[in-house]
């Protein structure tokens, strides 16, 4: 897709992957941060990680099983928090622990039976060894995430404002909420190889947190967050590959730095000097 600008296939794949991942995660991140379920990031990431471990153990596509596990968490999360009458955050904590246990079990078992399992790429990301179809998958999920927000913007904004008030006003909260979890699950699972389970959280939270420092409406956050994430991610990918540095950690650090600067520069915390 960007081959006409970037001649090198590896760099092109890496830049495209970072671009699409950052757009999908940042758009979904606005919803995640605004409804205070940031822990969904690492829960989904670790579910995908557990899925990848199971996939490798079974000798089938790690990505497909990672997607399946993330979707399973998405399917469980809503009913679990509704039925068990616990907060979404508590339900996420339970599922996070369960996912980690499954991942550790299979990694330990594979080591025990002499089938080595290198989890580095899944934990920290690897933009070099990407297949073309993985990049297409990310392109599709980033388009899906944007479409989801565009089509259901009014429902999403009402839920973000206050879930109970949204429900009382006659909005069908549950299908929208579950739809959102479904898209987050796929986005997280597909992004796992690129930015890694441990760093994915940064893309789901930080761009939205940066946008929040400057935006006075959710609409503008949905535009600013992916733009910031895309710009820093593409720059991070190019710089990382140019100077042989690990791309995902480098970009995560850059996002963190921009967040710090945003907090300092944010007009929202400025106290007026005016007396009138």
């Amino acid at each position: 897709m960007l081959g006409f600008i970037i001649q090198n296939n590896i760099v092109c794949n890496a830049v495209e992957a970072m671009l699409f991942t950052s757009i999908a995660c940042a758009v979904l991140g606005v919803i995640i941060t605004q409804i205070n379920i940031s822990s969904i990031g690492f829960t989904m990431a670790h579910a995908a990680f557990a899925g990848a471990a199971v996939g490798m153990f079974l000798g089938v596509s790690a990505t497909l099983v990672a997607v399946a596990f993330s979707l399973a968490v998405a399917l469980l999360l809503g009913p679990l928090s509704d039925r068990a009458k616990i907060s979404t955050d508590t339900a996420l904590g339970v599922l996070f622990g369960m996912s980690m246990a499954v991942a550790i079990f299979f990694i330990a078992y594979m080591q025990h039976i002499g089938r080595g399992f290198n989890a580095t790429a899944l934990l920290f990301g690897d933009v070099i060894s990407l297949y073309r179809h993985e990049v297409y998958g990310l392109a599709v999920i980033s388009v899906l995430a944007v479409l989801f927000v565009v089509l259901f913007y009014k429902e999403i904004s009402a839920i973000v404002f206050n879930r109970k008030i949204a429900e009382a006003s006659g909005i069908r909260v549950t299908p929208i909420y579950y739809g959102m979890l479904f898209i987050i699950a796929i986005a997280v699972a597909l992004s796992l190889n690129i930015i890694g389970g441990l760093l994915l959280y940064v893309w789901l939270v930080t761009p939205a947190a940066i946008a929040y420092q400057f935006c006075y409406s959710v609409r503008s956050m949905f535009v600013v967050a992916p733009l910031i994430a895309a710009a820093i991610s593409v720059a991070g990918a190019v710089a990382g590959l140019e100077f042989s540095l690990p791309v995902a950690p480098l970009t995560a650090v850059a996002l963190g730095g921009v967040f710090m600067a945003a907090v300092i520069l944010s007009p929202k915390r400025r106290i007026t000097d005016s007396k009138s």
Binding site: Q34, L151, F152, K154, E155, S157, A158, F161, I165, A166, S169, G170, I171, R172, Y212, C215, Y216, S217, V218, S220, M221
Partner: peptide, 19 residues
């Protein structure tokens, strides 16, 4: 990030239906 006007307009969202 919601103005009072946006919140008041949200009162209509349930009536409109999806999409």
């Amino acid at each position: 990030p919601f103005t009072a006007e946006e919140v008041i307009t949200m009162g209509r969202y349930g009536l409109m239906g999806l999409l």
